[in-house]
Design a protein around this nucleic acid. Structure first.
Lengths: 338, 338
DNA sequence: TTGAAAGCGTTACCAC
DNA sequence: GTGGTAACGCTTTCAA
């Protein structure tokens, strides 16, 4: 499979190289006859334009850079739907996705932009205050943030509305007559990295609990895994309440916690209530199916990509904070209202 | 943040453009003094070489193409460790990863190779007989397969040794005195797509059972999810055996099956045995911790990348089939030997 | 040890 | 509606 250039196509079609280019890009009217012959030649040679040359000449790569939280010692559960959706949308717009690991820090962003490796960048897993933001904001390549940092530096942000998520959870527990709430903290590494959504959720939960006149206790950071879940269950068991409502914002602590509660004879949905923040798929497959506020990684990603392509077409689009509204689905872990 | 070229660096350092290039590549001896001045200039301009231009001139992209099974309606659980490891290794070798979704089929491979988007391709999620192989084998860009198809078309293959995995599982159940075995089939979509490892595992399991003189029953394809697991549990409950050993090769049916068995009062590790094929991490976090044969996605990926870079350095390296040996870890779901 | 200059394969401007 | 040609920014051969 030897590789042909647009020159070969031009020769075979009996036209100039520029005509070949214009046929492919559609940036100039071409007679039907010429187009036919060029397309035919392209077909016969299975010609593919060289990406490097094209990028060099056109200043466009048709590549989206995606900075993923790999190698920063962070739990990557739940990341796949983001990557999958971003790659899918990119493809429908004839773009590819270049993966950059977050362990490079700002250097990765500088490289992506400086070397013109992509036309736009998606940056996720943001800390509330994140070193990379200053770099990202000063780069020629447009950057979309998934997450809402304290200061977005004028960049576009897309994320789940974590505050609304907290309000939904607390509201549901209030409506079903709970007299006491517990909020399970995120694992220490998450808290320590001060990921932006942790705060957004916790603050709103506290505010909502206040608004409903409900006492809310924060069960300090719970680690991943079975042991930690047991500890948390023990602390929950010690809480004195008529109807206790537990809110669990870290998706992958939900299942272990349900188990640990069960093991203590505390059945969620019978003896106390649990609402988790996790995707509908995960909530439905949990044991038992857990009442949840949805995480919607696909919607968030889709929206981020829409913003990205809008920005690529119109660089003047005003920056905005775009929040996806989660929804609550009642399953089996919340006590029915009195 | 305006962007500089190597010409700017050359001017600032008072050398020629080619010298800048040679300083960066190390392909020619440079005097210390010159090198210092060039590096200094690079630093002061925060110069980054343009990737397109570099690729065009050098015929090298420092990009690895990764074809992932997105958008083909296949379950992507367990994919993340592959992507993560591949991206990580790529970075240590100064390469980036370009993600291509499998829904493009052979077209994706043709595009990757034809446009010179990458230096090498990793193809995963192979069917036993896969359309894409013929294309992949005839492309200028070297292709590494993760998986072992019926005919590798001369390409390098890396994968877990699924046959050995089956032998380990069956051997353990034989050694612990089981008199009857059941093999849970993969979900229909997996079987239907005829993914290469399904067959490799099942055939070896059958052979091993024969060798141990144990009857092995295949519980026909079980779908994902709670309901399907219940059905499988019912069928297992109906099997007459003194000591029944169950082998579950589809990682994400393990946990639902454990639940379903428990719900029927059949406690794995007490009333019957279950060995799953899943990562050690997943096995340890399962409820209860499940005796497992490890999947080792990271080792497989790492090995694939080693092969890839070896191939990039020496295109004559003979193709080989490189199988990673799984290991068995005893946890709580296998009856102790008699 | 260094420099000059010829490509690499496109795109897009300027002519016609 | 089409062709010629100058960029694009780098690598690498050829010369010195």
């Amino acid at each position: 499979m030897s590789t042909f250039t647009s020159k070969d196509v031009a020769r075979l079609a009996g036209v100039s190289q520029s005509t070949v280019s214009y046929v492919m890009s559609g940036k100039r009217p071409i007679s039907d006859e010429t187009r036919r012959r060029v397309l035919d030649a392209i077909d016969r040679l299975t010609y593919e334009p060289n990406a490097g040359a094209r990028a060099l000449a056109s200043q466009r790569t048709t590549v989206v850079g995606l900075v993923v939280p790999f190698g920063v010692g962070v739990d990557t559960t739940g990341l796949l739907p983001f990557i999958e959706t971003i790659a899918g949308v990119a493809r429908t717009r004839d773009h590819d996705v270049l993966l950059v690991t977050a362990d490079e820090g700002s250097a990765g962003i500088r490289r992506l932009a400086g070397r013109s490796l992509c036309d736009a960048i998606i940056l996720m897993d943001l800390q509330t205050v994140d070193d990379r933001l200053a770099v990202a904001a000063n780069v020629r390549t447009p950057v979309i943030l998934i997450g809402v940092p304290a200061d977005p530096h004028g960049m576009h942000c897309v994320d789940l509305d974590f505050a609304e998520a907290a309000r939904l959870a607390v509201g549901e527990l209030a409506a079903t007559g709970h007299d006491r709430l517990a909020l399970i903290g995120h694992p220490a590494d998450i808290v320590h990295r001060d990921l932006n959504y942790v705060r957004r959720f916790a603050d709103a939960a506290r505010a909502a609990a206040d608004a409903h006149g409900l006492p809310l206790e924060v069960i300090a950071p719970v680690e991943w895994g079975r042991e930690a879940a047991r500890g948390a269950a023990a602390r929950l068991a010690a809480i004195e309440a008529r109807r206790l409502g537990v809110v669990v914002p870290a998706s992958n602590t939900v299942q272990p916690l349900l188990h640990a509660l069960n093991a203590r004879g505390l059945v969620p949905g019978r003896d106390l209530s649990v609402i988790g923040l996790l995707t509908d798929a995960a909530a439905a497959e949990a044991e038992p199916p857990v009442t949840n506020v949805s995480l919607e990684p696909r919607d968030v990603s889709r929206r981020a990509m829409e913003t990205l392509f809008r920005l690529l077409e119109d660089r003047t689009a005003p920056p905005r904070i775009d929040l996806i509204t989660p929804k609550l689905t009642r399953r089996q872990t919340v006590l029915p209202g009195p």
